[in-house]
Design a protein around this nucleic acid. Structure first.
Lengths: 199, 199
DNA sequence: TATTGACCGAAAGCCATTTTTAGTCAAGTC
DNA sequence: GACTTGACTAAAAATGGCTTTCGGTCAATA
């Protein structure tokens, strides 16, 4: 019998292969056979884990965001000032997402145009998930008196919105610029925003 | 002899026609003959004013930004608090650009993908031009003691960067959401940022 | 001197044919 | 019998050869 662990491993292997193949070929050129070969399973088996090619690519993106949210949650727990935590979280959000798709160079556009609609609706979910984590830290900062009062979730949304244009959503990483510059802009902006919520 | 005024008028008429035709057909489907017919001049005459189809479209976008900058400059001169001026400017930037391309619905993507590279380099110029105007108000706010000191141009850049994701650059106006929501987000975010630079 | 539209070559559209590929499922494996 | 597979199919994408369209030019014209 197939155990849950095995299922998860194969699923992850499929997404790993997807990541590699997306970088090499882009979405349109990547075939299910490519994935199956790369993982070393039959094509039919891929469909035991995912219902369509599109779902595979979307799950791949989902996984990136899940990993990001794990990182954010970890930072939220760290034993540093609320202010530093927020800064670290926003900068991490920007740089991690940058790094996650950095190796796609030309093929990012292909992915985005192919999945446009579906990605747009997921974007909102991603945003909400990230906002919740940020909001929890803002709340704790408000409790401790570091931050002025106000709707924490709304403030978190503002932090995310403000740094959204630094994310490689429609612009490829190449078009966005150097990683260091992106990071600098993110840090800079976050500090300005933090000043806006400090007591 | 053709006067400078006549030249300017024809040039503007060409860009007016371009605006209309871009909305109706999109960039790829719009032809130079369409433009010439719409303006009521010969096709060759179009090329007395512009060197290529691409340049026409780019000039059309340039004109939008010029008009925006005029609006921003006008607000910069208004007799209201520096804070209110900044808020008005940022909100105007977002809503004016929204309205300028609102009628393109589906055809915005077409324009963006056709002119991608050229638009990307202009984007920087637009950003700089807008930043200069904002920075002048920040500076005057710093002088009057409303705002804390700091590199005004850099602060202006942060204000723009923060609201960039509200601009219809790669997302169509439809994808961005309702105009009122965009405006609300812009205002909200600007106020937060303003708190960050107030003394 | 200013304007034009006939003209040119390149690019885009078109369509019929071939190839590839997403997704299925009967057969096979352990 | 639970799980995996790759041959199979319908649909989509690529190909190629032909036709039309269109961006850009420039000699003719007003």
């Amino acid at each position: 019998m197939r155990t849950a662990v095995q299922t998860k491993e194969v699923r992850d292997a499929i997404l790993d292969a997807t990541d590699m193949l997306l970088a090499r070929y882009g979405y349109k050129k990547m075939t299910i056979d490519d994935i199956a070969n790369e993982v070393g399973i039959g094509k039919g088996s891929v469909y035991l884990h995912f219902s369509s090619k599109e779902e595979i690519a979307l799950s791949h993106v989902d996984r990136i965001i899940e990993r990001l949210c794990d990182k954010l949650s970890a930072i939220a727990e760290q034993n540093i000032s609320t202010e530093k935590r927020i800064e670290k979280m926003i900068v991490t959000r920007v740089t991690f997402r940058f790094e996650s798709v950095q190796h796609y160079t030309q093929s990012l556009n292909d992915l985005l145009s192919s999945l446009r609609e579906n990605l747009l609706s997921r974007r909102k979910k991603y945003h909400d998930a990230e906002a919740k984590i940020i909001a929890s830290v803002i709340k704790s900062g408000q409790k401790s008196g570091d931050f002025r009062s106000g709707n924490a979730l709304q403030l978190a949304n503002s932090f995310l919105l403000a740094t959204n244009s630094l994310l490689p959503f429609n612009l490829s990483t190449k078009e966005l610029g150097k990683r260091e510059d992106i990071e600098k802009s993110a840090r800079n902006l976050t500090r300005l925003l933090l000043r806006g919520i400090k007591k």
